[in-house]
Amino acid sequence: MDFKPLITLLAIVNPLAIVPFFIHYTQGFGREQRKRTILVASFSAFLVIAASAVLGIRILEFFGISLASFQVGGGMLLLTSALNMLNANPAEAKPNTHEMQDGAEKAAMGASIAVVPLTIPLLTGPATMSTVVIYAERAATVLQLAVLVGYGVVIGLVTALCFSLAGPIARVLGKTGINVLTRLMGLILAALAVEVMAEGLGKLFPVLGRVAGS
């Protein structure tokens, strides 16, 4: 069984890095409201991954986009996310965006912020979707595609666990510990991004593959 997709997704989603955001946006929430936020955010993250795995290839075919081009573009997104993480920022975070501002306003009104901004764009975003689509194309059987969707379940469970233990995690690791883990994940993600881009470029420009092999 290939665990590379799961490792890549864990590096991109990186729920540990989102724990401080979760604590911030759920300040003042009651126990039940916080629990519901965790469930909705975790399930939403799974839905994004599952939908990307099942429908991603069809969407590319509809727009007439080749997988090789998508791999290069997706690899660039992964590399951008990796650079964010090497600076100790969440992979999908976009500080000062409308999504973040809307999330703050919803939190102030007592509405759920589980989907925006926790799930989108903090947990899952373009880089996550691109990664899932690329690995979905490599799935040769329905079983392999089901395993990829299953990895979405794992991501959802890990997210729920991290958010449920947000308080203890923040106390034990502290900001420094979370930053170190984020940078480590970013380094791994950067290597995976280069690999994805290299594969896409090799398909677009076969001569590059021959040069590399010589």
Rank of each mutant, 00 (worst) to 15 (best):
A107E: 06
N96K: 07
E92Y: 01
G125T: 00
R58Y: 15
A104N: 13
L122W: 07
T37Y: 10
F62Y: 10
V54R: 07
L55H: 01
G64L: 11
V116F: 03
A53Q: 05
G28M: 13
S42G: 11
S130Q: 04
L123T: 05
M109C: 15
D102M: 11
S42Q: 07
G110I: 14
T128P: 00
S44A: 14
S81G: 08
A111H: 14
I49L: 02
A51G: 02
S130Y: 08
A91C: 09
I113T: 15
G56D: 05
F29Q: 10
E92W: 04
L83C: 01
I120G: 02
L86C: 00
K94T: 00
A140T: 13
A53M: 06
V72F: 11
G125M: 00
A111C: 09
V142G: 13
A111M: 15
S112L: 13
V54F: 12
L67C: 08
T119M: 07
A114C: 11
S81N: 00
S130I: 08
M109D: 15
G64T: 06
Q71P: 07
V133I: 15
S130N: 07
S52K: 09
L118K: 12
A41C: 12
S130V: 04
E137C: 10
A88E: 06
I120S: 02
M129G: 02
A45C: 07
L77G: 05
L77E: 08
Y135W: 03
I49E: 00
P126A: 12
S44R: 01
A127P: 01
R31S: 13
V132H: 01
T141E: 09
M129T: 11
A51W: 03
V116W: 02
L39P: 03
V54K: 10
K106T: 01
T97M: 03
K35A: 14
T37N: 11
A114G: 10
S42V: 09
A108I: 12
P117W: 03
K35R: 14
G110Y: 14
V48Q: 01
P121L: 10
I49G: 02
K94Y: 00
